[in-house]
Amino acid sequence: MDNSRSNSFLRSREGVLTVVALAVLLAAPLVAQAAGQTYFISLASRVAILALAGVGLNLALGSGGMISFGHAAFFGLGGYVAGAMVFHAQEGGQFLGLLAGTQQALLSWPLALAVAGIAALFIGVISLRTSGVYFIMITLAFAQMFYYLALSFPTYGGEDGMTLYERSTLGGLSVSGDLPFFFVCFGVLLLALLLCSRLTGSRFGAALMTARQNETRLATVGINPFPVKLTGFVISAMITALAGVLLVEQNGFASPSLLSWHRSGEIMIFVILGGVGRLIGPVLGAAVFILLETVIGGYTDRWQLVLGLVLLGIVLFARGGLVGLLAGRARHD
């Protein structure tokens, strides 16, 4: 039964779209490498990283109905913690006066995820008391607090941010080359997609999706919605934090802009543009957004105007985002 389920997803239009989208994302940098256009390799990494951030948010927003306008907090926190470990490895000193720096990603990345997870637990416990627009705004408020905290933290460069001169190494592997680093980003994205696919099909996923559609129903069958939503929120935050880690590693730079509300908005745009609650939605959303930005930006300085008109057209005329447009309505068992 399990196999027939997976196969039926792969045979559906949405399944085909998922496979094609990922294949294109994987092929693009290989073609770029062959053509000598290495700029496109880092562009593909950027798409994979920001898609990952969207995949994280999509779990909270699409599956759990938690419209977080503060996921930049986790994105930035992940990035800052991973960045700080590299920073201390280069400059000496200790993270929060406790931990010496390291350039070993197998240590610093899990640490970053743990810190973001704890922050999400704390933010979630308070924020999930509210609902609707109040939830949107209280998550924004927490993200803004982290933003101003980063601004006021002189150790890590305050407003100017901190520059890192080398990427972390992954076990014994160097990922300083553009292509190896892309493979890491792509691999992480695939794992996150697999995780989300299994999560939404699991018992936990059933409870989480019910919490979005009808909390009273969930409580009536005897499941307390709060821990379900809180768990979903924390997992979602940690996935987005991992994207923040990768972006800081890619750019060798961490600054408060990682935490700005624009970032939260941008991640949310990826999800809505791609199709809320659809597995591949954030990947399509991030890819199309970044490509539009790059392509239109190549033709005209007024790219924001064109981008705005295109996005407006999509939201007015393509309900359900890009996945809705290409693969129709979501199907559930």
Binding site: D2, S202, R203, G205, A206, R217, V221, I223, T231
Partner: peptide
């Protein structure tokens, strides 16, 4: 079916299982 399965799952007291597919 899935509407009823949610209640069965609640009855079994096990909503924090993250991997196995409910439909299987």
């Amino acid at each position: 079916l899935r509407n009823v399965m949610l209640a069965v799952q609640a009855r079994q007291g096990s909503s924090f299982r993250f991997w196995g597919r409910v439909m299987a």
